[in-house]
């Protein structure tokens, strides 16, 4: 009987250990802890080109993450990409004329949206659209422009 008790204890420890390991993987290793649990509000912006931006890419202001990209779609009427982002409710005082740009973190890093607050009196609210946007830089276009300027300048 005593043997049996020890065995039960060991099996209990094993199952608890396995569950704890899964918990560690979920909380410590994965992005679960970074998901937005709080309230968010949705704003959208239109870009000529979103480059390598993906759903769940960060939205940053002054380098601080204030939200995430929630959807990327294409507007066939205006021939532009539409990016929807969820911003956290506690950052709800961005002026209406805030501008959005797509930047790259480091030379080879992931792309993110950087917001630059403007000076308008009214604030962005759920469903508003950011009017001033700057597209992602595409390396091929930059190289193309550079070569073109070079050729034009050498005449």
């Amino acid at each position: 009987m005593r043997q049996n008790k020890t065995m039960e204890l060991m099996v209990g420890l094993f199952v608890a250990g396995g569950a704890a390991a899964l918990f560690v993987l979920a909380m410590q290793v994965s992005n679960l802890s970074q998901l937005n649990h709080g309230d968010t509000y949705r704003v959208s912006a239109q870009f000529e080109n979103v480059g390598g931006l993906k759903v769940r890419s960060p939205v940053k202001v002054s380098g601080v993450r204030v939200g995430r990209v929630s959807a990327i779609d294409y507007d066939i009427d205006r021939y532009q990409a539409v990016v929807e982002m969820q911003l956290e409710k506690k950052y709800d005082k961005f002026p209406e004329d805030t501008s959005a740009s797509i930047f790259t973190a480091g030379l080879l890093g992931e792309q993110y949206i950087a917001l630059e607050p403007g000076g308008a009196e009214d604030y962005l609210k759920d469903g508003s659209q950011i009017e001033i946007t700057q597209s992602a830089l595409v390396l091929e276009q930059l190289v193309g422009k550079f070569l073109f300027n070079k050729a034009a300048g050498s005449k």
């Binding site: 199952v15 250990g17 396995g18 390991a21 899964l22 560690v24 993987l25 290793v29």
Partner: peptide, 15 residues
Amino acid sequence: LSMPLLAAIFSAVGV
């Protein structure tokens, strides 16, 4: 039942 638990423990310890 044991395999997923053992694999989770393996990964967590490995990290």
